[in-house]
C-alpha cells in the first residue's frame, strides 16, 4: 500500500505540476512509495482526513492543529517566507474603498478554507459584521469567488492572500483590496502521520537541506517555494494554542 499524500485545495493551480515533481523527488529521496492524492474541495479533503485516508499532508493551520491533536500527526516543515494572510476584496467598481464602508447584510463570497474564513470574520468584527448579519456563500475555488464579485452576486470576497496575489493581473485590476491582514503567526504545514513517526527527523533534515543542491532547488522552484523551515514541536504547540484562541465558540 502506498502512503497517501495530499495538499490543501487552496494551492494555486499553476503549482500543480510542481507538487507532482516534488512527490517524485520525495519518493526517490525517502524510498517511500507515495501517491499524491488531490481533492477538489476542502469538504472532500476533510472527509478523507477524518477517514484516515492520508498520512502525509500539507495543510492550513486549522487542519494542521486538528491532525496533530486528534490524529497524532507530527510536524515536519513550513515554507520559508510564506505566511497565511487574508485579503478582503471588492469589485473595483464598488464605491466602498475602506472596511468601514461595509455594512450589515453584506454578501460574502468565500471558499471553505477554514483559516481564511476564521481570520476574515475576526477582522470584519471591527466594523460590526459577524455571522449574524452577513450572508456567506461558499464556492469551490477563489476564481469562482472572483466571478461572483464581478457579477455582483457578492459584495466582497475572502481570499488567502497568496491565492489573491496569484490571480492574473487582468482579474486583479477588476478588484480592490479593502484589507490585507498582517497576522504573521499562521502558516501551512507539512505533517506526517503517526505510522511515519520514526522518519520525522530524517524527513525534516531532507526538506530543510533541499536548497543545498541543484536538484532540490529545482524542485522548490517548481513549487515557487524559497525553501522549507523545520517546525519544532513547541512551535506546533504554540500554533495549537493560538488556533484554540482564534476559533469561535460557535459559528
Amino acid at each position: 500500500m502506498p502512503h497517501m499524500f495530499t495538499i490543501s485545495p487552496d494551492f494555486p493551480p499553476n503549482s500543480l505540476a510542481g507538487w507532482y515533481i516534488f512527490n517524485t523527488w520525495f519518493q526517490k529521496n525517502t524510498g517511500l512509495n507515495i501517491h499524491l492524492n488531490l481533492y477538489n474541495s476542502f469538504e472532500e479533503q476533510t472527509i478523507a482526513i477524518d477517514n484516515n485516508k492520508n498520512d502525509i499532508v500539507y495543510v492550513n493551520p486549522v487542519d494542521a492543529v486538528r491532525l496533530v491533536r486528534d490524529k497524532g500527526f507530527l510536524p515536519i516543515a513550513r515554507v520559508k517566507n510564506r505566511l497565511d494572510e487574508v485579503v478582503i476584496a471588492v469589485s473595483e467598481e464598488n464605491p466602498i474603498s475602506m472596511m468601514c464602508g461595509l455594512k450589515p447584510d453584506l454578501k460574502l463570497a468565500m471558499t471553505a478554507n477554514p483559516d481564511v474564513n476564521m481570520i476574515s470574520m475576526m477582522l470584519l468584527e471591527a466594523v460590526d459584521l459577524n455571522n449574524s448579519n452577513v450572508v456567506k456563500t461558499t464556492y469551490d475555488s477563489y476564481i469562482i469567488v472572483v466571478k461572483n464579485i464581478l457579477k455582483g452576486e457578492a459584495d466582497a470576497g475572502l481570499f488567502l492572500a497568496k491565492a489573491y496575489d496569484d490571480l492574473s493581473n487582468v482579474v486583479k485590476k477588476q478588484l480592490k483590496i479593502l484589507l490585507r491582514s498582517d497576522v504573521e503567526e499562521l502558516y501551512h504545514s507539512l505533517l506526517i502521520g503517526p505510522e511515519l513517526a520514526d522518519r520525522q527527523d530524517e524527513i525534516q533534515t531532507l526538506l530543510v537541506s533541499m536548497t543545498d543542491n541543484p536538484v532540490g532547488k529545482g524542485v522548490l522552484e517548481a513549487l515557487d517555494f524559497e525553501g522549507w523551515l523545520k517546525i519544532e514541536n513547541e512551535e506546533m504547540e504554540f500554533m495549537i494554542d493560538l488556533i484554540d484562541t482564534l476559533v469561535p465558540d460557535t459559528d
Binding site: 477582522l123 468584527e125 466594523v127 460590526d128 494554542d241 484554540d244 484562541t245 482564534l246
Partner: peptide, 26 residues
C-alpha cells in the same frame, strides 16, 4: 478586543494565550 484561553497540558493549566484585535467603535 481580547480573547484569552488557558493552555492545558495533561489536564493542567500551564500557561495562557491571548489574542487581541481591533474592536468595533460601537
Amino acid at each position: 478586543k481580547a480573547t484569552v484561553i488557558p493552555n492545558v497540558r495533561n489536564g493542567e493549566i500551564v500557561s495562557y494565550t491571548s489574542v487581541r484585535r481591533k474592536p468595533s467603535v460601537s
